[in-house]
Amino acid sequence: MPLIQVKDLRVGYNVYEGLLKVLDGINFFVERKEKVGIIGESACGKTTAMKAIMRILAKNSVLMGGKILYDGNDILRMNDTQFTEIRRKKFSMIFQDPSAALNPVFTIRQQFYDIIRYSSNQRMTKDMIHERAVELLKQAALPEPERILDSYPFQLSGGMKQRVNIAMALVSANELLIADEPGTALDVTIEDQILRLLKKIVEERRISIILISHALGTIKHFVDRIYVMYAGTIVESGPTEKVFKNPKHPYTQLLIDSVPKLTGEGVPEGIPGIVPSYLNPPHGCRFVTRCPYAMQVCKEKVPPSYEVEQLHYASCFLYDNGENGKDE
C-alpha cells in the first residue's frame, strides 16, 4: 500500500468573483522511501494539493471532494487528535521562503526547542532536547550548531535559514517530507547545495519526499517519479527518465521545450496563450485552449489517463485507441 494516496481531490477557493475551481480531481500516490516530484508553473495547484495533505488550506478554501489516504485512513476526515499525531510524528513541510517559517523575534534555540517538545509524547529534559536539536542541525550540515541556536533568524543567510528549516522539519518528518520549492528563493549555487543535502537526508533516513518545483532541471536530478500539473490537473506522470526522454502530453513537451538551453540555440518560443481562469475553466481538457493538437473531443470530455508506456501515463486523447503518434 502506498504511503499516501490522493484520490480525485477537488479543492476550490471562494473569492469575490465566485468559486475558483482549482484542483479538478487529481490522483497521485507516494510509495514509502520514494522521491516524487510535482512540476508545474505558478498557480497550477501544486501548493494547494500539498496544503490539503498537511491540512493547512486557507480559510476561503472549499473541499469539493476526494480523499487523501494515509495507511488506508482518510486524512481529510480524521479528527484533530488523530491528525495532530501525524503532524507530530509522520509528516512535515518546508516552504519556499526560508524566513517565512521562522519567527523573527525568537532565537532559533527557542523555536527549535518548542518544536522538539511539542512533537514528543514523553516529557523530555532540557539536555535531551538540546542534544536532539544539535544532532539535527549537524545533519542539516550546519557546522556550528551552538552559534546557530543562539542566533535570531535575521542573523542567518538565506541558505542557513533553509538548513534550519530542514533540521526543524526532520523532527517530525519520520515518514514524509514535503518540500515546496525549497531552493527557489536562494542563489543558484546555494540551491544546488540545499537540494544535494535534502537528497542525502531523505535517502539516509529512508523517508519519502514530495518535491515541488517549477524548475525542470531541479526535478530531473532529484526524484524517481514525476507528476506534471497543469491548471489544477495532473496531465502526465511516470518515472523521471521516461518522462524527460519521451514526454507524451503536449503540455509537458512544450514546457520542456520552453526552457532556454545552456547550449544556446536561441530562446525558445514558450507556450502560446495563458492559463485559463479557474472561474470558468474549459469543460474538457484544461489545456485545450493552448494545445496545438486540440481536437473536438478535447473540448467536450475530460481525458482519462492512458498508459503510454510501462508506468508512464498521459491524460490526453492523442493516446486514445492505442494510437501513439503525433508526439514528434
Binding site: 508553473e41 517549477h214 530562446v267 495563458i274
Partner: peptide
C-alpha cells in the same frame, strides 16, 4: 514562468 519567458525575450529582441 518559463512558458511566458520566451515571448517576453522574443519581443525584447
Amino acid at each position: 514562468d518559463v512558458s511566458v519567458q520566451g515571448k517576453i525575450i522574443k519581443i525584447l529582441m
